[in-house]
């Protein structure tokens, strides 16, 4: 499995290895998607953010950045502080100190709604979609298209189909299908496609491949690669080092609430995986 990951990464990612933020924009499709200023400030930048709960310091002085069209994996054991970082980015709670910048602008979210409005899409494993609603209704939920006061069903169905097609989901029987009947990978495609379609700046994916088969995991990574082309910055929160290396431009390793190490992905991935794992376990 490791060798297949290496192969795939060599094929798809060598272009961006080494200097990801600068070269990533060139990868982008010329579709006129507004947003990323070329080689400008990062889509998301954390500057020494910390979070204290009473006497407990959950996250200390964490800094890293996420460029437009860049995929960064946040790795670390349970309790390393990953989810606390994600919750600060998505506005669930505010950092005790430090700064979050979007496109170079310092922001302070009082709740997740504000984060969402500033272009941060967060996809928690199972909570992002309404299983009893069909695909296109989920896709446009909260941002429905209307025509003279009523839902523009025709346009929403067509745009959903197109967005899913673009993200790489080709074998869906119908956008009128209930999400309940979709596979885990198809659900991820829907969430990712939605973030791209609504031109979010940053997409946070919390364990997007948890509980997925190897085949489905690869598909989800294809969606991520496709999404990155639109210029969205993607932060993956993951456990599996080998999987993370196969899709990301950089990995950030957290341990005990701090950034333990940061790696650009490239070269010998098997060796890199070992290094990363050492950083995760703290033996490095």
């Amino acid at each position: 499995m490791e060798s297949s990951a290496t192969q795939r990464t060599d094929g798809a990612l060598t272009a961006v290895v080494g200097n990801p933020p600068a070269s990533a924009p060139e990868d982008r499709r010329e579709t006129g998607v507004p947003g990323p200023s070329e080689a400008g400030p990062a889509a998301l930048e954390l500057r020494r953010i910390s979070k204290r709960f009473g006497q407990v310091v959950a996250v200390r002085d964490v800094s890293f950045s996420l460029g437009h069209g860049e995929v960064v994996a946040l790795l670390g054991d349970n309790g390393a502080g990953k989810s606390t970082v994600v919750k600060m980015i998505s506005g669930v709670f505010a950092p005790t100190s430090g700064e979050i910048r979007l496109d170079g602008q310092a922001v302070r979210f009082r709740n997740s709604k504000q984060a969402r409005e500033r272009g941060i899409a967060t996809v928690y494993q199972d909570l992002a979609l309404v299983p009893t609603m069909n695909v296109w209704r989920n896709f446009f939920l909260g941002s429905e298209l209307r025509h003279r006061g009523r839902l523009d069903v025709k346009r929403m169905r067509a745009e959903t189909a197109q967005a899913l097609h673009e993200i790489g989901l080709r074998n869906l029987s119908s956008v009128d299908q209930e999400v309940k009947g979709l596979s885990g990978g198809e659900r991820q495609a829907l969430s990712i496609g939605r973030a791209v379609h609504f031109q979010q700046r940053v997409l946070l994916l919390d364990e997007p491949t948890a509980a997925l088969s190897v085949k489905e995991t690869e598909k989800v990574f294809d969606y991520v690669r496709q999404a990155r082309q639109s210029g969205i910055g993607i932060l993956l929160i993951m456990h599996n080092t080998v999987q993370a290396l196969s899709v990301s431009d950089r990995v950030v390793v957290m341990r005990h609430g701090e950034v333990a190490a940061e790696f650009a992905v490239g070269g010998d991935l098997e060796a890199l995986a070992k290094q990363v794992n050492l950083a995760i376990s703290g033996a490095a």
Binding site: R116, E117, Y124, L127, A128, V130, T132, G142, S143
Partner: peptide, 10 residues
């Protein structure tokens, strides 16, 4: 269907 997901989309 899912109040959490609904809130998550605003």
């Amino acid at each position: 269907g899912s109040p959490e997901a609904a809130r998550g989309t605003g």
